[in-house]
């Protein structure tokens, strides 16, 4: 067992323990928000502890992939390509979960699975963009070029997120903005008490640890896959 294997194991164990704690806190400790009246609204609100950290991880993953892309273009070390790819894969998985959990919450609250609310639209666009990243990688045979183009795309894609975000702010939105200033038209908005806030930040932290655990696992697997491929080719092409 190498040092990085040990790190992966520790991170995974930590993430698992934190996650158990999160389940207890979310269902046992966190109170109902004061302004939600119907039971359906109260139950569905709890998805917030899962939904928001999921998007946070997606966002974090895409920052990491863009940063790793920059580092790859500068250093040309394959390590950064592995990190960028792993991070996008995890990001896509989490944003997919974000879209699904969002829909589950939207059905009872907005009475529809999906609306073309700009924030939802932007989320869907971002998700498509990174599906595009994976398709781009899949369509290039030369590994060096694949890494280079993926890095370029990851940088462009990530920088387009804030511009997309700005565009949506100017559209009328019904999505609640629980952190920061929200729109008066938002539906399903709820207020955060101190306990809710504490549980929420705990969940955010848990998911962040979970992200790093998955990252170290995925990056390690990818790295080993490539080494096996390399060794195979050495045997065949010698």
């Amino acid at each position: 067992m190498t040092k990085s294997d040990l790190l992966t194991a520790i991170l995974l164990a930590l993430a698992g323990l934190l996650m158990l704690g999160a389940v207890v806190l979310v269902f046992g400790v966190a109170p109902d928000p004061a302004n939600l009246q119907t039971p359906v609204e109260r139950y569905s609100q709890r998805i917030f502890y899962f939904h928001v950290p999921t998007w946070w991880v997606g966002f974090l993953a895409f920052i990491v992939s863009a940063g790793a892309g920059v580092l790859y273009l500068i250093t040309r070390h394959e390590r950064w390509d592995v990190i960028s790819l792993s991070s996008v894969e995890i990001g896509v998985a989490f944003t997919t979960m974000g879209l699904i959990t969002g829909s589950i919450w939207a059905k009872p609250t907005w009475n529809t699975w999906w609306t073309w609310d700009p924030r939802l639209t932007t989320a869907a666009i971002g998700w498509l963009m990174y599906i595009g990243y994976l398709m781009l990688r899949g369509a290039i045979d030369n590994p060096e070029r694949r890494a280079r183009f993926a890095a370029v795309f990851a940088i462009v894609a990530f920088l387009s997120v804030p511009i997309n975000f700005m565009a949506i702010r100017w559209w009328r939105t019904i999505h609640p903005v629980v952190i920061g200033a929200g729109s008066a038209d938002a539906q399903g908005d709820f207020t955060l008490g101190p306990t809710i806030r504490m549980v929420f930040f705990y969940c955010l932290f848990t998911f962040t640890v979970f992200y790093f655990a998955l990252m170290s696992l995925r990056a390690r697997t990818e790295w080993l896959t490539r080494r096996v491929e390399h060794l195979k080719q050495q045997v065949i092409f010698r």
């Binding site: 498509l128 290039i140 070029r145 370029v152 565009a167």
Partner: peptide
Amino acid sequence: MAIHTRAREVLLPVLLFPVVIP
């Protein structure tokens, strides 16, 4: 970038449209 890929004409819209939505 797209010309170096296998699905060149198909891939370009997939990559470009999401980015130029603003």
